[in-house]
């Protein structure tokens, strides 16, 4: 179970990464790949950015949202507000494609 603060909510939300999905670097790209068990919900393969892979690895470790953002800002030179928006957009995408489940 991964606990994150979703900035779009005022309360803390719980997130669970799909255990049938892995993130791998293949060649010079990053991909989310899912096993057949979850193909009815999420795509078999989805290319993501290096930032997306960075966040996915933190999500798998159960790092909270704000801490994820802090980790990212330590690694990359980007404005906090912009990175925060991007992260929330990414989390929403992961939820939409069932890579991530939000537990109410």
């Amino acid at each position: 179970m991964k606990y994150l603060k979703n900035s779009t909510d005022t309360n803390y939300s719980m997130f669970l990464t799909n255990p049938e999905v892995i993130c791998r670097k293949i060649g010079n790209g990053f991909f989310l790949l899912s096993s057949k068990k979850t193909w009815d919900k999420c795509p078999y393969v989805q290319q993501i950015s290096e930032t997306g892979a960075f966040y996915w690895n933190l999500l798998e470790k159960g790092i909270q949202r704000d801490e994820m953002l802090d980790c990212f800002l330590r690694e990359y030179n980007i404005m906090r507000e912009e990175a925060s928006e991007d992260l929330d957009y990414y989390i929403d995408m992961l939820i939409e494609y069932h890579y991530l489940t939000k537990i109410e």
Binding site: P19, I22, N28, G29, F31, S34, Y44
Partner: peptide, 27 residues
Amino acid sequence: NDSSIVLSLLQEIFYSARTVNLVDNVA
């Protein structure tokens, strides 16, 4: 030799993808 060929190569390898281990091996 870049990521643009990954999807094509994934389609050419025969496997069931029934576990993440198999997916990981192919990746």
